[in-house]
Each structure stands twice: as C-alpha cells, then as structure tokens.
C-alpha cells in the first residue's frame, strides 16, 4: 500500500464518521458504522489491484459490506440501513455524479454520456450488492426461524 492509499483510507474513515454524526448515529453504533467505511475503501484498494473493472469491484465490496452491516445490525439490534448507508459512503459515486452534471451543462455529449453511464453502473453495482446480501440475510433468517420452531 502506498502512502496516498493509506491517506485515502483514513480520509474515507473520517468522512464516514462525519456522515454518521450528521445522520445522528450514536455510541457504539457510530463506531462500528465508521469502521465499515474504513473497511469498504481498504477492500476497494485491495481488490482493484487484481480486478480491472471498477463496477465489478464495487459490486463485490457492496455485497461484503452489506453482509457486515447485517451482522452488526443483528448484534447491536438496530435497522441495517444505519450501517449500510454510513459504511458505503466512501464508495458513493459523488465525484463521478458531479462530473456527469458538469459535462451535461457544458453540453458536450462525448464526455457526458460515458460519464453518465459509468455513474449509473457504479450506483447500480452498489445497489445490487446490497440487495443480494439483504436477500441472503432474509433466507438465512427464515431457515434459522424454521429450525427454532421445530425444536
């Protein structure tokens, strides 16, 4: 890991704490949610070295982080959204969305369209990853409940 990457990971962590506080998360939940933010970018740095497509990396990390969020939500007895929203902050395609809109206003279709498609790819990859792990969590819950009811 280079120095720039470590700075990025730490900055993502601090940014997640900031957003967590804006969302009024408190105590242990704030800490665990921000750790999620740290994890998400650390994983991104790690995975983007071996997988060339950014949307695919986004999808994988989104799956892993949402699983982390589901586990934390069970442990700390709070809605999963708390952790998902805060932990994915460093991955949110804010910069990309910004450039898309700037290109749109400049009226340059050649730069606007690829950027817009790219932003949608990233956002969809994130959303899909969240859905995949939420669905798995539901199935898992059902199985556990059924076993409990039998015994």
């Amino acid at each position: 890991m280079t120095q720039a990457e470590i700075i990025q990971i730490l900055a993502g962590f601090v940014g997640s704490i900031g957003f967590g506080m804006l969302f009024n998360i408190r105590g242990r939940r704030l800490f665990m949610a921000s750790i999620g933010g740290l994890l998400s970018w650390a994983l991104f740095v790690l995975f983007s070295k071996c997988i060339p497509s950014e949307p695919v990396v986004y999808f994988i990390i989104s799956c892993l982080i949402s699983t982390y969020a589901e586990i934390m939500a069970r442990l700390l007895k709070t809605p999963t959204t708390t952790f998902i929203t805060t932990s994915l902050i460093p991955l949110i395609p804010g910069g990309s969305l910004y450039y898309t809109m700037v290109h749109a206003f400049q009226g340059d279709l050649n730069t606007f369209l690829p950027k817009a498609i790219y932003t949608m790819q990233l956002a969809s990859a994130l959303a899909l990853g969240v859905i995949v792990s939420t669905t798995f969590a539901r199935v898992f819950n059902k199985v556990v409940n059924r076993k409990r009811n039998k015994t």
């Binding site: 902050i89 910069g95 910004y98 956002a123 994130l126 859905i131």
Partner: peptide
Amino acid sequence: IGNIMTLIPGIGLTNAIRDLF
C-alpha cells in the same frame, strides 16, 4: 468535490436504484 459530498445525492441515487430493484 470535497465540499459537494455533503450535498450530492449519491446516497439518494443508490437508495433509489435499490428501491427499484
């Protein structure tokens, strides 16, 4: 970009796509 992060609807966009799915 740093400043706009607090305003940009990145979370909104992701949640929107999640709702659609």
